[in-house]
Simulated assay, not measured.
Amino acid sequence: MIIGYARVSKDDQNLNRQVDQLQAYGAEKIIQEKFTGTKRQRPGLDQLLQLIRANDVVVVESISRLGRQTLDILNLIQLLHQKQVKFVSLKENMDTATPTGRAMLQMMSVIAELERNLLADRVKEGIAASRRRGVTVGRPRVPQEKLKIAIRMYRSNEYSVKEILATNQISAGTFYREVNRLKLKKLKRKDEQ
């Protein structure tokens, strides 16, 4: 059986291009997954490994779909080889049934990890450059006025937490952080007296 594996990292990304290519290759079954390639344990990959049998073919659009860590990719390919499963990557025109294909796989795995590391470095550099310019990076802060209103509502014992969060449009994490911060502040004042 020819089994396709299509993966993107984020929920808002689209798998259509990969699925089309896998179908054109002749994939009889396609496992689709939206999960980061930096993690070795992934539900779709686990499903693939349970599904494969000797003489099957696992096909991906690109080796980077299989993973981002060189060691993980090589271990996965080794596992497929041990199970007598052929691996094909369409973009790199790689077929592990041949010695050239196996050597190509090893080189491409190193390049996939390099790409991932370079991207992570560029993101870190961009964040650092933004901070040097005084640009706030990350989620916007919740206005203090909203937090004060939420705390007043909480202390009144008239509203449920769900109502407080919906009314003030704040997350549960933000709300509870503020509640805990105020409790700690109150305890410190007691200790100082």
Rank of each mutant, 00 (worst) to 15 (best):
Q47P: 03
T38N: 11
S130I: 08
A129V: 05
S130E: 14
K83C: 08
D56R: 09
M107C: 06
R65F: 06
L119R: 03
G126N: 06
L119F: 13
K29Y: 11
L114W: 03
G138W: 00
I73D: 03
Q144C: 10
E113P: 06
I149W: 14
I73V: 08
E113R: 05
T70S: 04
K146Y: 02
Q47A: 10
N75S: 12
P140D: 11
G126R: 09
L114I: 14
E145H: 05
I30L: 02
S89E: 04
L48V: 12
K146E: 01
V57W: 07
L49Y: 09
R131F: 00
T36N: 12
Q32R: 07
L90M: 15
T100G: 10
V110G: 15
H81C: 14
L90P: 02
R122P: 08
Q82R: 11
Q47Y: 09
K39C: 06
R65I: 01
L79Q: 14
A27R: 00
D46N: 13
V59I: 11
L80Q: 06
A27H: 03
A128L: 07
S156C: 08
D121G: 05
K83P: 00
E115L: 07
L80T: 04
L80D: 02
A54Y: 12
V57L: 10
F35Y: 15
S64W: 01
M108R: 05
R102S: 14
R116K: 07
A120V: 15
L45R: 01
T70Y: 04
E61T: 10
I52Q: 02
G37P: 13
M94A: 02
L79T: 12
V59M: 08
V123P: 05
K124T: 03
A103Y: 11
G101V: 00
M104V: 07
I127W: 00
R155Q: 15
V59E: 04
I63D: 08
M104P: 00
L90V: 01
I63Q: 04
V88N: 00
A129R: 08
A103C: 09
R133E: 13
T100L: 07
Q50H: 15
G101W: 03
K29M: 14
Q106N: 11
D121P: 01
T36S: 15
L51A: 10
K83L: 14
R68C: 02
S62D: 07
F35I: 15
E145I: 07
K83V: 12
S109Y: 01
R141S: 13
I111M: 14
S109A: 14
Q106H: 11
R122T: 01
V57D: 01
R152W: 15
R102G: 10
T36M: 06
E125F: 06
Q69G: 08
L79N: 14
